[in-house]
């Protein structure tokens, strides 16, 4: 894994991506810092991090577009996949290389809250906790988005296509909350939505195990549970789609971090999301080789 990590990390600085990313990230953060903290005279640095979360839409495709796609395009994946190293280590090496670059960018921006410290008359007024919690949230959110970008990178050979699809997917995450509010909130629609999710799940199961009978029985059992719940506990379906989408929303959890609420559930959710994305990434590569 070390070899892959080193290759990818140094690779960012061989082809200018690292320099472009860092300079752009620091420039935009500095810009927001100047506007929010310097010109407006606010001490709350966490607003800067909340505002620059939109930056992920640009920097994540930049960081992840080449990770697997270029290997496939240049046929260098033949070297990696025939080398004495597992696919999970290759994936993790690449993931941590991107994450490290993001971390370096974030560490550099620590200079901005440092500057604010000079203007603070009473050190107790300075919300260290909220800033650190925002940084942690920002880092974890970035980690989730990098995992998504890495997965998309393993699907296509063309980096441009990867960056466009990554941008589109991340954009969907950003508008998820707004979208959830517009969707129907009645019980029947929710039950239909859950039924659709069950159908998707069973289809994936069928594709994996290629046993129609087992997948069919599993589908019927889940649909049976759904119908029973719909008739005996209908209240749980009230505004169900909204609740499901909000629960899965990455952005809504980031707001908790920005507000200084450090919840273990949120940290756990982000970590689970990363592991899930990396897991399906590894699985996808394995499947493609079969």
């Amino acid at each position: 894994m070390r070899a892959i990590f080193k290759k990818e990390f140094l690779g960012y600085f061989r082809n200018m991506t690292g320099y472009i990313f860092l300079s752009f990230f620091i420039f935009v953060t500095g810009l927001y810092f100047s506007v929010i903290n310097i010109f407006s005279g606010l001490l709350d640095y966490q607003y800067v991090l909340s505002n620059i979360s939109m930056l992920f839409l640009i920097i994540i495709p930049l960081l992840t577009m080449n990770l697997f796609s270029q290997e496939k395009r240049n046929k260098t994946d033949q070297l990696l996949f025939t080398a004495p190293i597992s696919i999970s280590k290759i994936t993790l090496g690449k993931y941590f290389a991107s994450l490290s670059l993001l971390l370096i960018g974030l560490l550099i921006t620590f200079i901005f809250p440092g500057i604010l410290l000079f203007f603070v008359e009473n050190i107790n007024d300075f919300a260290f906790g909220r800033i650190l919690s925002s940084y942690l949230g920002y880092f974890l959110l970035g980690g989730c988005f990098i995992a998504v970008g890495l997965f998309i990178s393993s699907l296509f050979e063309n980096p441009i296509v990867v960056s466009i699809v990554t941008f589109g997917t991340l954009f969907l995450f950003y508008i998820l909350e707004g979208l959830a509010e517009k969707l129907p909130k009645d019980k029947f629609s929710c039950a239909l939505f859950v039924g659709f999710l069950i159908l998707c799940l069973c289809w994936i199961l069928y594709k994996r195990i290629e046993n129609f009978l087992f997948a069919g029985i599993f589908f019927l059992v889940l649909i049976g549970i759904l119908v029973s719940l719909y008739f005996f506990m209908p209240d749980i379906f009230d505004s169900g789609i909204y609740k499901i989408l909000i629960w899965f929303s990455l952005l809504s959890r980031f707001n908790n971090f920005s507000n200084g609420i450090l919840s273990l559930a949120d940290v756990f959710y982000y970590l689970s999301f990363i592991i899930f994305c990396l897991g399906i990434n590894i699985n996808m590569i394995e499947n493609k080789r079969n």
């Binding site: 070390r2 070899a3 892959i4 080193k6 290759k7 690779g11 061989r14 082809n15 240049n74 046929k75 260098t76 994946d77 033949q78 070297l79 990696l80 025939t82 080398a83 004495p84 190293i85």
Partner: peptide, 29 residues
């Protein structure tokens, strides 16, 4: 997999590396 050395039809090379860097990387890999 160490037991096999493979030279594919298109050599799997990273064009932005020097020859030495590339061979060092493969050594580590």
């Amino acid at each position: 997999k160490k037991i096999i050395g493979y030279l594919p039809e298109n050599p799997p090379l990273y064009f932005d590396m020097t020859v030495q860097e590339y061979l060092n990387f493969v050594c580590e890999l």
